[in-house]
Design a protein around this nucleic acid. Sequence first.
RNA 1: GCCACCGUAGCUCAAUUGGCAGAGCAGCGGUUUUGUAAACCGCAGGUUGCGGGUUCGAGUCCCGCCGGUGGCUCCA
Length: 741
Amino acid sequence: MVKIRLPDGKVLEFPDGITAAEVVSTIGPGLARKTVAVRAAGQVVDLATRFSAGEIALQALTESDADALTVLRHSCAHVMAEAICALWPRTKLVYGPPVENGYYYDIDLDHNLTPEDFAKIEAKMQEIVKSDRPFTRYELPRSDALAKLEREGNEYKVDNAQRAEGDTLSFYVTGAAGSGCWEDLCRGPHIPSTGRVGAFKVMQVAGAYHHGDASRKMLQRVYGTAFFKKAELQAHLTQLEEARKRDHRRLGPELGLFTLDPLVGSGLVLWKPRGARERFELEGLMREQLMSRGYQPVYTPHIGRLDLYRTSGHFPYYRDAQFPPLFETDTARILNELWIAAYERGDENPAGPREMQLLEELKAIDARTYAVITTGAASGNASSPDKGEARRKYELGPGCTAHNQALIREHLREADGFLLKPMNCPMHIRIYASEARSYRDLPVRLAEFGTVYRYEKSGEVSGMTRVRGFTQDDAHIFCTQGQLQAEIADCVELTCNVLSLLKLKDFRVRVGLRDDADKYVGSRENWAAAEAAIRRAVQASGMPFTEEPGEAAFYGPKIDFVVRDAIGREWQLGTVQADYNLPERFDLSYIGDDNRPHRPVMVHRAPFGSLERFCAILIEHFAGAFPLWLAPVQAVICTVSEKSCEYAGVVFEAFRKAGLRVELDAGGERIGAKIRSATMAKVPYIIVIGEQEVAGGSINVRTREGKQLGSCEPAQFLAACALEIQTRETPDPAVAGQTTA
RNA sequence: GCCACCGUAGCUCAAUUGGCAGAGCAGCGGUUUUGUAAACCGCAGGUUGCGGGUUCGAGUCCCGCCGGUGGCUCCA
């Protein structure tokens, strides 16, 4: 006997070996028709699953269930894989899971699939769906399954099987068992038959490394999506189309906000006047917040000595992601290369050919420095005589990394290279270090809209969300251990404040912690303290968050605010990071109330993150229709005919003097055309001035949403705008979007 | 950086098998003096991303670069 407990609490009894499908039919034929899988004892399983003995909680998953859609998509991945295998029999299948908006299947195939192939694949898939073949599961003992896969000669499936857990492995035949139909190693579950796939589409193909490992073979990842109903697919495609219209890369240039110019360089943003205005207003908002929270503005240069970033650790750690350093002399260039080579060889190894080659180069261009470095002869500069016992020469044996690096840095004091600044923190740290600090001065909060440059990989650069030069709304807080948590909490609050002011609600909070990778610097104790402070601060905020090991910065844990763009990609915006390590690396201190030096702790934080990225997200968030206070152009005055031009000019001047960002359209177009172009430019207020307004000394106001607010006196309008701007009134774009649609 | 795809006027897109580079919008000039999402007429706009090659002939085929897009990898 099997007892089946239904969601409503009812318990039904069945003989052993009853299938889920039979149970569901007992409940009702209508339900049976709509059910594609069941959740039994918390696990989603096939309708063909048999139950025996005990009591099982069972829930039918119908087409409206999110989990059912996932099952469908997984099944559709099989249908697509079969279609591809039928068309290109050389195809080796790798891995085909459902994902958020559909599914993909990784394949290894020498023919590159192109969008033209998609139609062929879809036609074949349609045949498979039409034939309405059942998904039939069978299981083999692990060793038999492995032997079968080895025989079939697909090394990827063998690899999958080896990684799978359990004593038995399951296969799914798209057809009856033993029918010779297409089959795949698969954990399941699946829908009952291919005919249940109501609508599908092959979306795109992209490269993907096997196991995500860049050193392994690049596979083809074919993306598709599937739904139970055609209308749902159509709605999904329409939504994608709408999202593409909101894409900042399309709207930004269209609305004249920014431009990306290959002549200037990939990933380098040119902010045009309208985009710059948006940024200017955001910076204003942030400045107000910072001033009221005790931050002090600072300014630092865009370039700094390489040694600054050797000290911070950014230069060695992120070397590949930085613009190459600039050198005044070849000696400095070669010494820097030697420093890198010493760093890379590590303590275990003796000097390699790279170091020998660099020493030879040094010898050729600067015999004096070469001699000093290789023989340890007096260099004439600061090497202190009391340490003179140790030989001050470049060591070729193992175990000398620190010694060699220190030696080279000493020589680089004469003429070091410069690095385009990849981070603001080292500069802010040197401002902190420029004077003696008392515990009474702490926290010291140094803020700057600091532009940084990072050499992002060519395939990574994208619009304004991933660029090679960007401005952080950066600040660094230097505080005592005891102040740390409150400072982090204030940063979290500040970030939430600005996000909520902008009605940016759709974000998630990620707490990035360290894992066991060796990229992290500093002691375990300090990491534990920093992680505890971060965790407590975010818990205190009451926001939901996820903890993600491996997501920390190399110097400390962090809280990231992550949003999605119009096409569903996630981007980190705001960030708050606790850091015990840079103060140590730069030997920072303050004098405590015990009159002894203490080490401060740092908080790195940027509520917007990058202004480029933040503005990109805002463009998409508002679909280019910015609230009045952010709008590059707040009002356009449109004349009905030449007869009203003079008066319109007077109103225009008055508005401009009042500080409104206003434009005058007194051209020869008709009023309808002027309204259309102002509407498409997403200008919040459109002012119509014709002979009536001239006669009445009034204006007529219309919104970009098409609402006619009627006529009023110019002063009335100005006062209303002033209030709306001053309070930074920000309508929820989700609601605004509905009225414009 | 890797894999794939794409690149025609400022924008959106045409151009049969390799056979005279074209349209709409935007721009400019004129006519119209207009009342809430597109008046009319005209003009101009191009080394088809760049550089090679094949061919009698290349926007179209081949090679190399540059740029963009979608993923992968990375993201202080």
